[in-house]
Design a protein around this nucleic acid. Structure first.
Length: 310
RNA sequence: GGCGUCGUAGCUCAGUUGGUAGAGCAGAGGACUGAAAAUCCUUGUGUCACUGGUUCAAUUCCAGUCGAUGCCA
């Protein structure tokens, strides 16, 4: 019995492709998927939304036709979604793929979502909308000190670990304490979840200055492709979390005449660069990862082949 | 060509009544457990344009040179 399980695990591999925005992940994922004749699971927290296309650099219809993609445009900006749901769905999807394939490709830039699939996340309650609204209100009216003193009562242990300047962290902790009746810290076990497949991580990178040039240029291309029209249509939804997104929030400000179009475009470029930088910071802590120049497909393929995937 | 103003961090500029300088932005580093393209933290040494002069000491005062800019011809 246990023999079968072990044997199964030995034969299934998830190839995880990560890297900063605009580095060329989409194209590489397709090549890898074609090479191993398999499917792609996206871990991009903005490409989930079917209403967001140009601004989040979703794969084009042509690209989508080259390999089967999952989690691209699978939900709407009005849906409530989170890492936990994603983890569940992605694992189901993987299981499905592994019934006919030995390999699958996970690709994306959202570190938290990558980790959810690779390591799992702790059992925590989903937010209750009313409670979250109440806590937000507390913060809005009484400020961050109110959150701190509230949390100090509910979970003094977590108070010593958390960044007390970060309102979102404080609000979530309070929320979890209140819904479970337990301290948030007692539920944060951070235990590696068992996974029935092997994981091979490869990171795509490029020279920083070059990457920034690519990002800047890609923003201009997005505008040429009609990003502004896409954003105009979404203006009524600007308060949704899904639209608190680089490329959209800046153009909303332009449409509301808070600054000029060229200022908005410059801000999109700056925020995209910073996003890339934050992604790199996150990915740098991965130890079991091999980094490649994003253009070096030959080397990547031979590395993947040599890891005995087939 | 003449007169004036300016030349300080990658950019925009402040400042030093003479004791070698500081803001914003950009950039860099970091954190990250159901909002994550989110949210938050840390981070400023640079020939003070160049060459001389005065001075114990010049980025600061003086002269010249170069560059930018404005006005006049």
């Amino acid at each position: 019995m246990s023999y079968t399980i072990m044997d199964t695990k030995r034969n299934k591999t998830l190839i995880v492709i990560i890297g900063p925005t605009a580095v060329g992940k989409t194209a590489m994922a397709i090549k890898v998927a074609q090479h191993f004749d398999t499917e792609i699971i996206s871990a991009d927290s903005r490409q989930f939304y079917r209403e967001l296309n140009i601004g989040v650099a979703s794969p084009s219809p042509e690209e989508l036709s080259l390999a089967k993609h999952h989690f691209i445009g699978n939900i709407s900006i009005t849906d409530t979604y989170n890492v936990s749901k994603y983890e569940t769905e992605a694992l189901h999807c993987l299981e499905e793929i592994f019934t006919t394939k030995d390999t699958a490709v996970l690709i994306g830039g959202s570190g938290l979502y990558i980790d959810a699939v690779c390591k799992g996340i702790d059992e925590l309650p989903d937010p209750e909308e009313e409670l979250r609204e109440d806590i937000k209100k507390l913060y809005a009216t009484e400020g961050i000190d109110a959150l701190r003193s509230q949390l100090r009562i509910l979970d003094p242990v977590y108070c010593n670990e958390v960044d007390l300047a970060n309102p979102k962290r404080l609000m979530r902790a309070i929320e979890v304490c209140l819904t479970t009746g337990k301290p948030y810290s007692s539920l944060r076990i951070n235990q590696q979840a068992p996974r029935s497949f092997n994981i091979v991580k490869i990171g795509l990178t490029r020279d920083r200055e070059l990457l920034y040039n690519i990002i800047n240029h890609r923003v201009d291309v997005m505008l040429e492709m009609g990003l502004l029209d896409e954003v105009k249509k979404l203006l009524p939804f600007k308060e949704l979390n899904a639209l608190n997104t680089v490329g959209y929030k800046e153009l909303f400000e332009y449409l509301e005449e808070k600054y000029s179009l060229s200022e908005a475009i410059e801000k999109i470029k700056i925020n995209s660069r910073r996003y890339a930088k934050r992604q790199l910071t996150w990915f740098r802590r991965y130890e079991e990862i091999k980094w490649f120049d994003a253009l070096n497909d030959a080397e990547i393929m031979s590395y993947l082949d040599s890891t005995n995937l087939r």
